[in-house]
Nucleic acid binder design. Structure first.
Length: 993
RNA sequence: GCAGGCGUGGCGGAAUUGGUAUACGCGCUAGCCUUAGGAGCUAGUGGAGCAAUCUAUGAGAGUUCAAAUCUCUCCGCCUGCACCA
């Protein structure tokens, strides 16, 4: 018998497939149901494919092949996210044009993908760095600009003083320059932004022809897609919605003490808070160093030189320093007081860099008793701490301190309470108390290192709150029955320590020794006393609005998307700066039929060196704005494009006078925000994609890619989709219906694969040694798609054995036709084979649809393990098994298929066809049910016997048989069966006393 | 700190409408075959025990005839975000 030779087989079929591209082509004309199966398009790095690529591409390949066999019209494209920094950095080093290195890398990637047998529709290949693609990236920029969704403003960017260049956030991780290790500082520069913040909440359509349409927001849209919970959570977290209130604090009127009095136009400033309920505990206010009020009040601040010095210091601070020093610093603004509108109290004002300028109003009301950061600051600068919220329902309390620790232990012993002393992960000692039979545990953390003598731990009623030196650590609740139990058991202790608790409560809790951050009940808050935090927030906000000293406000952490990059290897921003046009009022956009401008948005202008320039969009007919090749890649602090005269010297498309082209390029995330539209209509020269084709193929049915893109790429792509929906281009507002992330494949040593550790698995080597089919199977068999899994080279042997086993079986087995297909019992065919085949069809069909490829492969193995013992097999069964195998190991399946269907070389005489033109087998419902089962007989839930019975055995019969069993009788001697449970088709459980 | 997730043999993992725990694979053990084997074949393989049997899904409790699966608490690990008021 010929040996299984993966090299010959795989090469042969890859050649065949490339000669028959229609096997994998998505048919624009077909009336069949469509399925759009998409991989996140890769960045073609010089290193080629890695194990993680292979994992996710194999998964989508199996899915695509399966769906085609199921008769679906499948769109499964691939392309290249080809702009980006590595290619440019390489160019700086070697002076080789990024376009050249990129093309080489693409060729490698593509060759490797073909080597893996992936069934991409290569007729739809795209490359984001090619002009026919980035033409449309630029078109999108103009679309946003003309709809007021792209704008320019000053912003802080990462700046490396050593490299003289702007850095992307990813290049400035940890606050140091990726290239030279120099600390990164913040520098103000004019930057382009996309208004992603317009799409957080649902919005009404802007396009004229779609008046009634509502576009779902980035938040609520998540509710209608099938995505991993963690990804949805990460997006929500990133958007960072918090509901609270803006409160106006008046500054000049020191007499402002009557709360019915209005601020009457006095100078005031606003703070944002989510905890209005704590406002009576506000003892000072803080503004960020960048807050504009500082300049306005400059003359009134008595210690201005000191303040100015502080501002300089904090401005100089790098991100790294700000991150490293958690120590809070600040300076009081002497001579300035602000007034709390609720009680008229005059409060000091501080500037401190623990307050962020870009969040909320850049100013806060500080409530040290109920906010950890304010607490730290107040402690440091000796500011008053005023308790206004206390935990609710204080029933009982037990107080334990370090000085009484031994006493406490003795007390426990004396009361017969079992306990053990352990260390938690923070090395805090705790006592675990076990109460009675029910074994309720209470962890009493003694935490010597955190507790001063006579500080304490409190157990209160429904909540158990551990309070350390300065804050509440944790709470948890018991149900009522348990509380009672605890209280009874702790009675003696409670008596013993109660007085100490009361003393401490009076002395500590209400005098600022601790910081209680949770909701509770209000105290020291005038008419609001006794309300819960939630009630108080509601009432106080109403009052603010009534008195016009504040309002309800929702704040978001997310900021507009900074899209400009001072870089070469990206899509140029299609804008032209014209001095002359800035003087003409009522500028109209250059003629553009494609991009509507329903609001008649005018050109924005910007200032360079004191001169105003109009920002003219490049007319559509002049797109793409191509990247020049006469550039020097050395970093100079500006985009390398600035050096190219031919690039930036242009005539204004509106007035024809001398003008200058924008030299910034776009973030690569812009390119990847819309590529999934392009696949639907990749050849289109008139539109980014034709309406009909979008309608036909989009949205994406299954999207698979790395979890590193949970936030940015997916959020930006959703934003683009919402913009298009909002402007009436498309009729859906979420691009990816179902999303899954492949888990990271770790190296054999359990660490991340990385070049520096030298533990990277190279797919080329693996394929050379074991074959693509083996690698595909192995990566799918390792475990669930989404789990993190370590590579294990030995494990791949198992897959090679599996493939060889199939090979050998198909070469030695005698195929028979018993005249009735796969189901009929045949001579010499093992009895269970037809049923096993149908079970296998069912299992594999269901597993593929749920992306459980590991268990699908296990089922293939079970079948072949069983079948390989047989000498004969029905022809129909042999064919069906190969079809089941085909999505997983396409090369071997084609080879064996050709073998059993027609003589090799394949289909040469038109005798047969590729296995991928076959139909996915259906299973017979009656055949997947067992005729007989092993009826499990349990006694008190423990299996004691098993008997082979008919699957549809009746309850009475089953019980009779169970009681008649010899093994069971033994257990029933002298016992009485109280109850007998019968589960149809499964078991009998006899309950005895 | 906040959010999401995880914890099952020597290893990767199966089994979650509660119903035979450890499918499938790797590894390991024994035997066969072979000049040889990091090849192949056969059998075995959670732990303890000669056996009957007992015992085991991070720990403990609860619900149930029955819990890896549901509830609660604790412990440990991973991922993302984080001075976001």
């Amino acid at each position: 018998m010929e040996k299984y030779n993966h090299k010959n087989i795989e090469a042969k079929w890859q050649k065949y497939w490339s000669e028959q591209p229609e096997l994998y082509t998505a048919a624009d004309e077909s009336g069949k149901d469509k399925q759009y199966i998409l991989d996140m398009f890769p960045y073609p790095s010089g290193n080629g494919l890695h194990a993680g690529h292979v994992e996710s591409y194999t998964a989508t390949d199996i899915m695509s092949r399966y769906l085609r066999l199921k008769g679906k019209n499948v769109l499964h494209p691939q392309g290249w996210d080809a702009f980006g920094l590595p290619a440019e950095n390489y160019a700086i080093k070697t002076k080789i044009q990024p376009a050249i290195t990129t093309r080489q890398a693409v060729a490698t990637f593509k060759q490797q993908m073909k080597m893996m047998g992936f069934s991409y529709d290569w007729s739809r290949e795209l490359n984001s760095s090619e002009p026919d693609y980035y033409k449309w990236t630029q078109w999108f920029f103009l679309l946003l600009y003309k709809n007021g969704l792209a704008y320019k403003k000053k912003a802080k960017v990462n700046w490396c003083a050593s490299c003289q260049t702007v850095l992307a956030n990813e290049q400035a991780e940890g606050g140091v320059c990726e290239r030279c290790g120099h600390p990164v500082t913040q520098k103000d520069m004019e930057q382009w932004f996309f208004k992603i913040t317009d799409f957080i909440e649902p919005s009404f359509a802007k396009a004229t022809e779609a008046k009634e349409r509502i576009t779902s927001g980035l938040l609520d849209g998540l509710n209608k897609v099938d995505w991993p919970e963690s990804t949805k959570a990460a997006q929500k977290n990133w958007i960072g919605k918090s509901e609270g209130a803006i409160i106006k604090f008046s500054i000049f009127n020191f007499q402002f003490s009557n709360k019915s009095q209005k601020p009457n136009g006095q100078k005031y400033f606003e703070v944002f808070t989510t905890r209005v309920d704590t406002i009576f505990g506000c003892t000072y206010l803080v503004v960020a160093p960048e807050h504009k009020i500082l300049n306005e009040l400059k003359l009134r601040i008595k210690n201005w030189p000191e303040v100015e010095k502080y501002l300089e210091q904090s401005n100089k601070k790098t991100d790294l320093e700000r991150m490293e020093s958690k120590e809070k610093t600040g300076v009081e603004l002497k001579g300035i007081k602000a007034v709390n509108p609720f009680n008229g109290q005059e409060l000091p004002l501080f500037v401190a860099d623990y307050v962020l300028a870009h969040y909320g109003t850049g100013a806060i009301m500080a409530v040290p008793a109920h906010d950890q950061r304010d607490f730290e600051f107040a402690k440091k600068y000796n500011l008053p701490i005023k308790q206004v919220v206390k935990p609710k329902d204080v029933l009982r309390s037990v107080v334990v301190g370090i000085t009484v620790e031994e006493r406490f232990k003795e007390e426990l012993k004396r009361n017969g309470i079992k306990f053990e002393v352990g260390l938690s992960k923070n090395k805090r000692e705790h006592i675990r108390v076990i109460l009675g039979k029910k074994q309720i545990e209470i962890y009493i953390k003694l935490a010597q290192t955190y507790l001063k003598p006579d500080s304490w731990v409190e157990i209160i009623g429904s909540e158990n709150i551990f309070i350390f030196k300065d804050r509440v650590i944790k709470n948890f609740s018991f149900n009522d029955k348990k509380i009672l139990n605890i209280c009874q058991k702790f009675e003696p202790l409670v008596k013993h320590y109660k007085s100490l608790w009361e003393m401490l409560e009076a002395n500590l809790f209400y005098q600022g020794w601790i910081c209680y951050v949770d909701d509770g009940v209000l105290v020291n808050s005038g008419e609001y006393n006794g309300l819960t935090s939630a009630e108080a927030r509601e009432k106080m906000t109403e009052w603010l609005e009534k008195e016009k000293v504040g309002r309800r406000k929702i704040n978001y952490k997310i900021r507009d998307w900074l899209v400009s990059r001072q870089r070469y290897w990206g899509a140029p921003i299609p804008i032209i700066y014209c001095r002359k046009c800035s003087e003409i009022s009522n500028n109209q956009f250059p003629i553009s039929k494609q991009i509507p401008n329903p609001k008649n948005i005018k050109f924005q202008t910007t200032i360079f060196d004191g001169e105003e320039y109009a920002m003219i969009p490049v007319p559509e007919k002049d797109l793409p704005v191509k990247l020049p090749t006469d550039v020097d890649f050395m970093p100079t602090g500006q985009s390398p494009l600035v050096n190219s005269e031919s690039f930036h010297k242009v005539k204004c498309p509106v007035c024809g006078s001398k003008a200058r082209r924008e030299s910034d390029t776009m973030d690569t995330f812009v390119c990847s925000s819309w590529y999934y539209f392009r696949y639907a209509d990749v050849q289109n020269k008139k539109e980014f994609a034709g309406k009909e084709m979008i309608k036909k193929w989009l949205p994406v049915d299954l999207y698979v890619g790395g979890a590193e893109h949970t936030v940015l790429h997916l959020l930006y792509a959703r934003f683009f989709t919402k913009v298009l929906h909002n402007l009436g281009y498309i009729d859906f507002d979420e691009p990816f219906l179902k999303l899954r992330h492949q888990g990271i494949i770790l190296a054999e040593d359990g660490r991340k694969m990385s070049k520096s550790l030298g533990n990277v698995v190279n797919p080329d080597e693996v394929v050379k040694q074991y074959g693509a089919d083996a690698l595909r199977l192995f990566e799918m068999f390792m475990g669930p798609l989404e789990d993190m899994k370590p590579w294990n080279t030995r494990g791949i042997i198992g897959q090679v054995r599996f493939l060889e086993k199939i090979w050998q079986f198909y070469h030695k087995v005698k195929l028979t036709d018993c005249g009735g297909g796969a189901n009929k019992p045949c001579e010499n065919v093992p009895e269970g084979m037809p049923r096993l085949l149908h079970k296998t069809i069912k299992k594999i069909t269901e597993d593929i649809e749920a992306l459980r490829f590991n268990t699908a492969i296990a089922q293939l193995m079970i079948f072949i393990n069983f079948a390989s013992k047989a000498e004969t097999m029905p022809q129909a069964a042999a064919e069906k098994f190969l079809i089941l195998l085909a999505p997983f190991a396409p090369h071997l399946a084609e080879e064996l298929w050709a073998n059993i269907k027609s003589p090799l070389p394949p289909f040469a005489k038109g005798g047969s066809h590729s296995i991928f033109k076959e139909k996915w087998p259906e299973y017979d419902k009656n055949m997947v049910k067992n005729e007989t089962i092993n009826l499990v007989i349990q006694i008190n839930g423990k299996t004691r016997d098993m008997i082979k019975v008919s699957a549809d055995i009746s309850e009475a019969e089953a019980k009779k048989l169970a009681l008649a069993s010899e093994k069971i009788k033994k257990w029933l001697v002298g016992k009485e069966a109280v109850k007998i449970i019968f589960v149809k088709g499964k078991l009998v459980n006899i309950v005895i006393k």
